[in-house]
Every structure is written in structure tokens, then in C-alpha cells.
Nucleic acid binder design. Structure first.
Lengths: 245, 245
DNA sequence: CTCAAATGTCTATTGATCTAGACAACTATA
DNA sequence: TATAGTTGTCTAGATCAATAGACATTTGAG
């Protein structure tokens, strides 16, 4: 018998959303693998101690995400299960890491700009405040579903053609190579979690109210000189981060 | 003039909670450092395009967390700013990493049990399903504020006195040493983010509706034999994870 | 002291969320 | 072909979330 699961009221997060989050987690944990379907609505309602209608709202949200599909008379089937695991290691390369997990990987350049380095960027890249940097804004998708949005910053003096090269080569690693940098390593990564803002909701096509994992990372050349600072925001319900040390 | 910030309606996350999250983030980003206080309620209401009462609900939640303090006639002052940074590296040791950031570190043992290894635990520790493991449940705090709750699992055959040793020594590293294991390294860490469940809310004293960062990690001895599997859940609004490679 | 600016409190109203119950429609199985 | 089990739909009422407006109270500056 499933243990009674508790949800909290008057928290500013609607019950249906809390329950949707829990069911999503249970699916990705494989709790329902035996049957391949979610428990009946009445069972879930009893489990969470709420009305069946509340469970239906939660399931409707998950159906919207394409995670489950309800069939009248039969039940609610699981359509998709796994979170994509994004590896973070000394040599983190976006497309390589996702390799086997998704068939199609796409990174789309949303825009680029040359600008003066602000405090955070200058500090991360260890350049002077106001030094020119190139900013790239990208969205990455796996099998057509957006997985992350990023803003990346490069010192413009050292990598003047970053935007053009990236637009053409579709790869940061190759764009670095075109500037004569053949290898680089991840120096540090900081991870925080928070609710997605409106821009992230629309870019990541998230069901609103969702959570993002934000990773701020610095890559450096082999002389430990920073070459890239980036802020990547991952859709937390589609991704997990895997740290390999 | 501050840019108009957008919040989404009918998402299952109340506006006041979305706004509280955004203000919390702005505080930890240092956006309000110049004045040392949050903008006036009317300014925030205009910025987010909501009623002043809605902003007041958000600020009340932040005051509850001890993050801000409102003074009639003056404004709402920032009481606390930084997130604690939790380092994850090859040799991750809980108390060392937090060293300078908090004055008092405490880890309290909530309970322990000897049990048969379930699927996930057995897989992580690379032992047979049903082999005995020792489970430790702990809460860790910094300066009196709970930062994380953990469930950790150790192969009982190799570390039979883990619970007693930990209770006495207040340190996993020392408990390992008491069993003759002097060094161990972090093999892998997986990080996901989600809304806190009721148990986490109460253990971490979170303002309900909050987000947790869950890190599932495996530590191994120098022969790469796993010695610990643990699931740590961090209060996402108080912590960031720092990965050092 | 006076006044502007800020937070504190109250009432009233609207819309979203949750509960409750009843019944229809569909599916698989005995 | 019944029947149990499941999802789909409808109505009604209770509670929470958000808006709107008015006014009190406190603080700091001129």
C-alpha cells in the first residue's frame, strides 16, 4: 500500500502543482514502471489526501507537458520518463555529454552583442571592468524539446570573431579552435535553483511555475586564464546535472 | 528606472510567492546593495504590475524567513544577503567546505536503522539487493539555520558500527577512520531541483512552497569500492552548490 | 513643527483553487 | 453481454489569492 503523501496548504503553491511535481518525480524515479501507467485518480487522491478533481488538475498539467496521456476507461499512461542527464566535468562539452541520451541535439544562436564587461563578468573572466566582451545567447534542445538557455561571455580582445565563428560552426569548441585555442577546462561551476522567470518560461517552453537550475561556470585555458563565463539555465523537470570528479 | 518585471498568472504558483522568489534573488545578487534596503512597496508593485497588497504578502514571507525587516515610516531593510556556498569536489567534506562562511556548524543525527538494501541503494553501493546497510538520517545547520537534510547509506558488513561511531564522533570522516578507512573520494554526484515535500519543509524550516536542491552522491575508497551513498537535500534559497573540478 | 514618504490596517469585491457529489462514457474482462 | 474499474463532465459551495481604495501610524528631512 502506498504511503500517505503529504502536501501543504496555503503555501502560495497550489495543491495541483505540488502534486504534479511529485508525480513527475515518481515517474522519473521509475516508481510506476511495473504497470507503465500512473495509479488511478481515486488512488492518487487518497494518497495525497485531496479531492479527485485536484489530482485531475495535476494530471492535466502533466499531460500538457506530454509526460502522460489519459485514456478514458483505461487509465493514464506514461509517455516519457527520463530526465536528461547533463554531465559536468573538467572537460565539459555540451553536445558530447548528451550523446546517447537524445537523438537530435541543436544549439540555436538567439543573438550576440559586443559590450563592456560588467562587475560579475569582469570578475569571472579576470579582466578589467569595462573591457570589451562578446555575449552569445543560445538555446539548446534535445529531440526538439528545449533543455537550456545560456548567456556566454568571451573576452573580445582575445576572441574577436567569436560570434561569427559560432554562428557558422555551431560549436564553442570549434570557435575557440578557430582562434587558436585547442583545449580548455572547466574551472568552477556554481549551481542554484529557483522558479523560472517569464523569459525562461517562454524560451524553455516550460509549464509555468516551473523550476530552473542555473549553473554559472568559468572555463579557462591550460594557463588558467579564463576564456568563457556562462550562465546556463536548465529546465529542472527535464534535466539532472551529473558531476564527475 | 527599473525594468518592468513580468510574473505569470494562473500557473499554480501564487503571485506573491513568485515575487518573493524574485526579490530574494535580487537581494542575493546585490541589486539593492546601494541603499541596503528593498525598494518601497509602491515601487515594487509598479515594477511587477501588481497590487501593493500582493507585494506586501511577498515581503511578509521574506520577513518570516528573516531575510528582511520592515520598519514603519522608513522602509524594508535587508537583514541577510548571501547564500551559503557548498563546495563539491573530489574530497568533499561537509564541515570543512563551509568553514569560513558560517560560524557554527552542527550536524544532528535524527535516527539510524539497519535495513536490507533496496534497488537504488544496492546499485549505488554495488552490493547485492537485500544486503544489510546502515542508514543515517541527519540535519545540518549553519549558525542555527538548517541547511540540509540527508539520508546516507553504508554497507553494514564493512562498517558495522557506523551509527554508534557517528553519534559519538559527529563526523562521517572520523567514523570511517574508526573502521580503518582513512581516505575516500567523491565518485559522482547527481543534482536535481524540485519543490520541497512536507517532510523537507518541516526539517529545513522552509517557508512552504520552497525549492530544494537534491544531490545524490557516491563516495568510494581508493580502490573505487563504494563506501557511502547519500541523498542530501539543500534549502535552495539558502545554498548554492559550487563544483570544483 | 510640518510635510512627504513609507509601512500598517481595514473593508469590499472578484477570480482562482479546492471540495463534494452525481452521473456519463469508455475499456477490459469474466 | 454484464460488470467492475476507470476517465470525462457537470453543478454548487467554501476557501484562498489578488485587486481596489481609504485612512492610520511612524519616520526623517526641511
Amino acid at each position: 500500500m502506498a504511503m500517505r503523501k503529504v502536501v501543504e496548504r496555503q503555501t502560495g503553491v497550489a495543491l495541483w502543482r505540488q502534486i504534479a511535481d511529485r508525480i513527475r518525480l515518481a515517474i522519473s524515479n521509475g516508481d510506476y514502471d511495473a504497470a507503465g501507467m500512473v495509479p488511478p485518480e481515486t488512488a492518487l487522491a487518497a494518497e495525497f489526501g485531496v479531492n479527485r478533481h485536484t489530482v485531475r488538475s495535476a494530471l492535466a498539467a502533466l499531460a500538457d507537458e506530454g509526460l502522460v496521456r489519459a485514456v478514458q476507461g483505461r487509465g493514464t499512461m506514461i509517455e516519457r520518463k527520463e530526465r536528461v542527464s547533463y554531465p559536468i566535468s573538467k572537460r565539459t562539452r555540451f553536445s558530447q555529454g548528451l550523446g546517447r541520451q537524445v537523438k537530435e541535439i541543436g544549439t540555436r544562436l538567439l543573438g550576440h552583442a559586443e559590450m563592456a564587461a560588467t562587475g560579475e563578468v569582469a570578475k569571472a573572466l579576470r579582466i578589467a571592468l569595462g573591457d570589451p566582451v562578446i555575449e552569445l545567447r543560445t538555446v539548446s534542445s534535445g529531440d526538439g524539446r528545449p533543455l537550456s538557455v545560456s548567456a556566454s561571455y568571451y573576452p573580445a580582445n582575445r576572441f574577436p570573431r567569436m560570434a561569427e565563428d559560432f554562428a557558422q560552426l555551431h560549436s564553442v569548441t570549434k570557435a575557440f579552435a578557430a582562434h587558436g585555442l585547442d583545449d580548455y577546462v572547466r574551472v568552477s561551476t556554481e549551481i542554484v535553483a529557483r522558479h523560472a522567470d517569464a523569459e525562461e518560461l517562454s524560451m524553455l517552453k516550460l509549464s509555468p511555475g516551473a523550476i530552473v537550475l542555473e549553473a554559472q561556470s568559468v572555463n579557462a585555458d591550460l594557463d588558467a586564464k579564463p576564456v568563457e563565463y556562462s550562465r546556463s539555465r536548465f529546465a529542472a523537470d527535464r534535466m539532472k546535472l551529473r558531476i564527475e570528479t
